[in-house]
């Protein structure tokens, strides 16, 4: 069938478009979708900020004078600063091995990398307690050497690394697979070293995908609650991350302070979403690998 034989389909008839629903059905579907989204997305977000500012700006800001709140913010930043680079390096290494080479057992490896996504956060924390807790596998050894993992920073970092494990790898693997190996082979044949090829050819090709993965990884690392809650021990000022501090404040009926700290996390989510959308709109091709050629 070629286009020259068939007349173009009549699209000009405004009232009789066959590829869409009637006006009534359209309105009903749009209303259903939008009210559902308003109820489930907009309202929860709005309520956080309204509750946080209920007592005015002064009360809002005083929530951050609390040394425990400041310690929680510091701890959350510290944990993310350790966990995100670890998973960034892993993600690049895994994507390099998986996308640039053909080897046996590849799909099994990809499945295993995705595994942490299908494990409940609470279970993610539990497995580390079973390993490093007082009654855990390595518990006696750690105790004998005076090393604290559970109820201390290392445990919180490990649990965070576990739950954010796949983010960067999963963004990069399809992208680098799409880009293939032609660019790298050209650079190598022109005499560039392996490292130089990676830094000057591969890295620029994947930079937006990498940034995207790091963005999502960071948002989850700073916001993780379940896994961290299991391993943290909730020691105020010491092992309390921001989400855990929100819980403590809330359970003490200190609602304004709880929502104030929560509003920072909500702001982080909004910034993440905005950056993610901007990346998708502007660099959509570079993210899906089509723009590299």
């Amino acid at each position: 069938m070629s286009d020259t034989v068939l007349p173009a389909p009549a699209r000009e008839g405004r009232g009789r478009r066959v590829t869409t629903e009637g006006a009534g059905a359209r309105l009903a579907l749009a209303l259903a979708a939008l009210s559902f989204l308003a109820l489930f997305l907009v309202l929860p977000l709005v309520v956080v900020f309204v509750e946080a500012f209920k007592g005015g700006i002064g009360t809002y800001l005083s929530a951050f004078d609390d040394p425990d709140a400041q310690a929680a913010i510091r701890l959350t930043l510290t944990v993310a600063a350790i966990a995100v680079p670890l998973n960034l390096v892993f993600g690049v290494a895994a994507a390099w091995a998986i996308a640039k080479f053909a080897f046996a057992g590849k799909s099994l490896l990809v499945t295993l990398i995705d595994l942490p996504f299908s494990v409940s956060p609470v279970v993610s924390g539990l497995v580390y307690v079973l390993l490093f807790g007082a009654q855990g596998l390595f518990g006696p050894f750690l105790k004998a050497h005076g090393i604290e993992v559970i109820f201390a920073l290392p445990g919180i970092v490990l649990a965070t690394v576990f739950v954010t494990f796949p983010f960067v790898a999963r963004e990069l693997i399809p992208l680098m697979q799409e880009q293939g190996t032609a660019d790298e082979e050209a650079a190598l044949s022109l005499g560039a070293s392996g490292l130089r090829t990676f830094l000057t050819v591969t890295l620029p090709n994947i930079r937006w995908g990498l940034f995207y993965g790091v963005l999502l990884c960071n948002a989850r690392a700073m916001g993780e609650f379940g896994a961290v809650s299991v391993v943290s021990g909730h020691i105020r000022g010491l092992t309390n991350t921001m989400p855990l501090h929100v819980e403590i404040l809330y359970n003490e009926y200190n609602f304004i302070a709880a929502f104030a700290v929560a509003s920072l996390l909500a702001l982080l989510a909004l910034v993440t979403l905005a950056a993610k959308s901007v990346l998708e709109w502007r660099y959509g091709d570079a993210l899906s690998g089509r723009g590299a050629h």
Binding site: L41, V42, L45, L216, L265, T272
Partner: peptide
């Protein structure tokens, strides 16, 4: 439309504890 489309990912991005207390407040 684009804004709403971006907002669909909010439950991914919003820390679960924040979602929890927000839903409780609602």
């Amino acid at each position: 439309r684009k804004l709403i489309d971006a907002a669909v990912d909010l439950p991914f991005a919003l820390p679960t504890a924040v979602a929890g207390i927000a839903l409780a407040a609602l």
